[in-house]
Structure formats: structure tokens, C-alpha cells
Amino acid sequence: MSLVETNGTGYASNADWSAYATAYDLLSRHNPEYKALMREFEEFLAEIDAPKIIYDVGGGTGNYTEIAARLCPESSICLVEPDPGMMQAAKVKLSARKNVTYQNVGLENAEVPEEADLLISVHSLYAMPDPHQRLADMRRMLRRGGLLYLVDLGRPMDVQDWRRFLFSRIRQEHGLFGALMIFWQGRQIAKQNKAIFEAQQDGTYWTHSADEIAAAVTAAGFDILDQRSVYRGYSDLLVCRATP
């Protein structure tokens, strides 16, 4: 667990999230593991009653907010994202979605005018200061019985492993020249993933086992309904219910 300061960004320092925002959505188009995560979220939403209030915490460029807004058009959705570059990309992407509002703040400063039925947090908790306290904040934002859909990067980001994996998969689909062009366009992703790895190594960003994140979630006031390893074993997916 990291207790480092955020300098007002809402994230523990190291990765340049605004720089990351310029290339981040290449993940949704070309990373098969990221696309699999989004499909899993779509399947999850299809299986539950439509939530009235949804918060997407650390929502980045708005990919999960976009899915929720599309599949739950009657829901009121708030995207909470502290980084201005990520937030601007999200607002452009979601400009046609009238059921989305925004808070450009860190989770600890988020306003909660009404408790949520669903809170989404995908690949953001590990980069927040004091993730155990942030889990408690998430519980505070949810009504009793509300659902937490949590995906978190727990294991160190092996940049070389991901580079080999992605180049192989993208080359199969787009050929050698296409793969080289995509990698050039996404060079900022590799740079920021290296910064993430270094922050994990020095303890700035939280790393955890599946058991450790399960214990943290339970201690924060959640019952775990489902838990599994995703993202080639680097991340944990947990569906949880807020307890009284």
C-alpha cells in the first residue's frame, strides 16, 4: 500500500497520465486482452438490473462509461477522473451521451449527492494513494447492496512480455508493416507502462496477490460475489456487494 502524496492529481505520481491519454484508446482497438475486459463488462451489465446511479471512478478516457451509457440509457452516470488530459478525451468521446456527468477530481474528493447502485473501477485503484482507504471511499459512495465492479492491476507490469504478446497478435491481424505503424502510434503507451512498472517496483503503486486484494475489499465492507484472474494474469476482477 502506498501512502505517497498526489500533488493534487488524484493519482500517486510517476506515470504521466495526460500523455498516456493521447494514445490510450489504441488499447481498446488493438489489445485483445483489453477488448476481452470490455466484453466481460458488457456481459456483466446484461446480467443485472439496470442501475439508477453509476459512478465510474478513475474512468480515464471513458471507455467503460461509454459502455454503461450505451447499455443503460436511463441510468445517471458520473465519470470521476482527476487527470485533465484523460478527462478531456472522455468528454469528446462521450459528447453525445446526455446521461453522463463529470467530476475532474480524485476519488477522495468526489461529491456523492446520491449513493450509487453500481461503482466501476478499472485499472485505477493501484495508482491511487492509500488504496485501502480508497476502497473505503468506494463503499461510502455505494448504497447498501450496491455493486462494485473492480478490475485492478496487481502484478508488476512486464513491459517486454506485453510488447512480445501484442506485437505477435497485431502482426497476425495487420501484417508486419501495420504492426510497426501501430506500435509507432502507441509508443507513448510503452513509455508510460515502463513508468508504471518502475512505480510498482519502488512501492509508489500498489501491487497485490489475488488473496491480498480480496482481503482488502472484504475489510472495506464488501462481500465478494465473483473473483477471477484476468488480463493475462496481471489483474484481478472482482464483483462485490456493499454490506451494511
Rank of each mutant, 00 (worst) to 15 (best):
A199D: 14
G8N: 09
M181S: 06
Y64E: 14
A21C: 00
D25T: 08
L142R: 12
M128R: 02
A46H: 13
S75Q: 11
G154K: 06
E47I: 06
S124H: 04
A220L: 10
D152Y: 08
Y55S: 07
L27E: 01
K93E: 04
V80A: 09
L125E: 12
F183N: 05
T6K: 08
A195Y: 12
Q103T: 13
R144I: 11
P73E: 13
L71M: 14
Y234P: 00
Y205L: 15
M87S: 14
R187V: 11
R169M: 03
S229V: 13
Y126T: 08
G203C: 05
M87W: 08
M128C: 09
L135C: 06
G154Y: 08
L153C: 12
W17Q: 03
H123R: 00
W184H: 04
H132C: 03
G62W: 01
L26Q: 05
L71S: 09
E5H: 10
P131G: 09
L150N: 06
G154M: 10
L3V: 13
L125M: 06
W184L: 08
A199W: 14
E81W: 01
T65D: 02
M157R: 07
M128N: 07
K52I: 02
A242S: 15
V239S: 00
R164S: 12
S95G: 10
R232A: 09
L176R: 07
P51R: 01
D130A: 14
I54Y: 07
L166T: 06
A190G: 14
S28P: 02
S168L: 04
T207W: 03
F177C: 06
D158F: 11
N7H: 15
W184D: 06
A216I: 05
E114I: 01
N99P: 06
L26Y: 08
V217R: 05
T204I: 05
S124I: 01
Y102H: 02
D49G: 13
Y11Q: 13
A36S: 15
T61P: 05
V92K: 15
Y231Q: 10
D16Q: 00
A220W: 14
